[in-house]
């Protein structure tokens, strides 16, 4: 079997911007002195006249993006998730969200897998923050194929979109020939009846591996890929709740307010079943390699399988 190919979704983001630029002439890209890291530099190299570096000034960048959108541009404002969702939160809320402008926020370096830079740069709160903004769409793609499709879907959708990308190379498991991305529609990657792993972003491939481990122990596992956190595919999630009776959410984000929070909120009203949330607990990260950190924080297939097994054994 050939080795699984890997690519960081930030890389996919930069490539998609470049590859879609000709098709969408209104697309412009902004960055805040991180073009080399966010990979918008790939776009900048190909289309320098449509790239605007705002310097280390994220608040202004979000406002500039808003102004560009009022004039018909489709701006992608890019920086690390920490600064896009964190530092610039109130500008995103008031200058982009409230007027519902056609701004796309390309947030890279999300989650604990930022690695060595440590806690100040590991944003585990961005989904929670962005979810509270009325009308904000949140996309969290799992691999290269999905990330590129998400970028085009964001262009075609009129309104604010927060796109979440990672620093770490992620396994490519979707087939570019057949893959279809629809905002707000989750994907069932594996059928099962005993429990459902509801995963997003970097954790989707780990959830698939965990499902294999659980299957070997005789547990039938459904796996959902929720690439759109908002609007949430409540239909698919509530169906899984009804049919499997146990949901385990898996995300590289705080267990507060992210996918786990959104799923718990959804099933509370449609089909209350136990929801076990795997993510970063209510704590800060720290320095280390991405792989070591993911393991330490339980964001790996072994821990997902262990948590799922325990929850299943406690299921009535």
């Amino acid at each position: 079997m050939a080795e699984v190919q890997k690519k960081a979704t930030r890389e996919s983001y930069g490539e998609a911007l470049r590859d879609l630029a000709e098709k969408y002439p209104d697309l412009v890209v902004l960055d805040a002195d991180l073009a080399a890291a966010t990979k918008t530099g790939i776009f900048q190299k190909a289309y320098p006249e449509r790239f605007f570096d705002c310097g280390i000034a994220e608040a202004n960048m979000m406002g500039v993006a808003a102004g560009l959108a009022t004039a018909g541009k489709i701006p992608f404002a890019s920086t690390f998730a920490m600064f896009a969702a964190g530092r610039a939160y109130e500008i995103v809320r008031n200058s982009i969200g409230y007027p519902h402008l056609n701004v796309k926020i390309g947030a890279t370096h999300a989650g604990i897998s930022v690695g060595e830079d440590g806690a100040t740069h590991q944003c585990n709160e961005d989904i929670a923050l962005m979810r509270t903004i009325p009308g904000m769409t949140i996309l969290n793609p799992a691999d290269d194929v999905e990330a590129k499709a998400a970028v085009e879907a964001a262009i075609l959708y009129k309104g604010p979109v927060y796109l979440r990308f990672g620093r770490l190379a992620a396994p490519i498991f979707n087939d570019p020939q057949t893959y279809q991305f629809t905002i707000g529609k989750g994907l069932t990657l594996r059928e099962g009846t005993d429990l459902t792993l509801v995963a997003t972003g970097l954790m989707v491939s780990e959830a698939l591996k965990a499902a294999e481990l659980l299957e070997a122990d005789g547990i039938s596992v459904r796996v959902l890929n929720i690439h759109t956190i908002k609007p949430l595919d409540t239909e698919l999630i509530c169906q899984a709740a009804r049919e499997t009776g146990l949901l385990i959410t898996v995300e590289e984000h705080s267990v507060i307010g992210g996918l786990g929070g959104a799923v718990a909120e959804a099933v509370t009203s449609c089909c209350p079943v136990p929801v076990v949330r795997i993510g970063v607990n209510d704590e800060y990260g720290h320095s280390g390699s991405a792989v070591d950190l993911l393991k330490e924080f339980g964001l790996c297939s072994d821990n997902i399988a262990a948590v799922a097994q325990k929850a299943f054994s406690e299921k009535k």
């Binding site: 605007f52 608040a59 202004n60 960048m61 979000m62 406002g63 500039v64 993006a65 808003a66 102004g67 560009l68 959108a69 009022t70 004039a71 018909g72 541009k73 701006p75 500008i91 008031n94 200058s95």
Partner: peptide, 12 residues
């Protein structure tokens, strides 16, 4: 915030 949006309009 308004001045930033105005910058975006002028840039467009």
């Amino acid at each position: 915030q308004g001045i930033s949006a105005a910058c975006g309009m002028a840039l467009a």
